[in-house]
Amino acid sequence: MEVNEIIKPENLVYEKPRLMNENPMHYCPGCSHGVIHKLIAEVIAEMGMEDKTIGISPVGCAVFAYNYIDIDWIEAAHGRAPAIATAVKRLNPDKMVFTYQGDGDLAAIGTAETIHAANRGENIVIVFVNNAIYGMTGGQMAPTTLEGMPTATCPYGRNIALNGYPLKIGDLLAQLEGTCLVTRQSVQTAAAVRKAKKMLRKAFENSMAGKGTSIVEFVSTCSSGWKMTPEKANKWMEENMFPFYPLGDLKNKE
């Protein structure tokens, strides 16, 4: 059988999301960003909102998110995405607005912007990729780096006396009246991906229904920063990250 005979609509089991373009991704093999990008592209397309969506990309590995999903984007200064999203949404209430941020961006330099946007209940979605490390700058300690976890700036492992505790910012955000959804998801298995997509869709729907701020945290890997194979990184995440950052809804207001 020729390949052309196989490629028919009735044989279709999977296709690249319509909003993902052909640009080769700069992400490392095994990185969670690719899957999370794909889910965002799928949800926006399935909601039919591509002509109304504005994404705010961060500083960090996902700074170039705008190169991969064909929607309008604004690239933020480090940590400022929630402030930018606040104005974009308030000035354009009919648009669907989301930020895409890593742990350093959201939970270190951008903590004030994150907490205050969420506390005001801005009708935006915050996609939070937590891999407990600074990927783009070469694997330095993040606010979410686990105790004992080695990074370039805590080469002997995170020392609580020296560096303080890993920050459970999701738990903190769930306490705020302005948030309607705070959920912690992952994308290392097919089942996890399906569940994560469902919550992502809910978050985007909340933002258009004016319910307040929705935060979807993805507990993720960083094979390069963690210096592990993708397979080992997934296992390490399940064994070490999940006990400290347990998956599930921290808050889900109906």
């Binding site: 504005i54 930018i84 000035l91 004030a112």
Partner: peptide, 18 residues
């Protein structure tokens, strides 16, 4: 009223971007 001058100018950046 923003939470800081930093947030306020970034709100301006976002609004101007639209």
């Amino acid at each position: 009223q923003a939470e800081s001058e930093v947030a306020a100018i970034n709100m301006v950046y976002g609004g101007a971007g639209t």
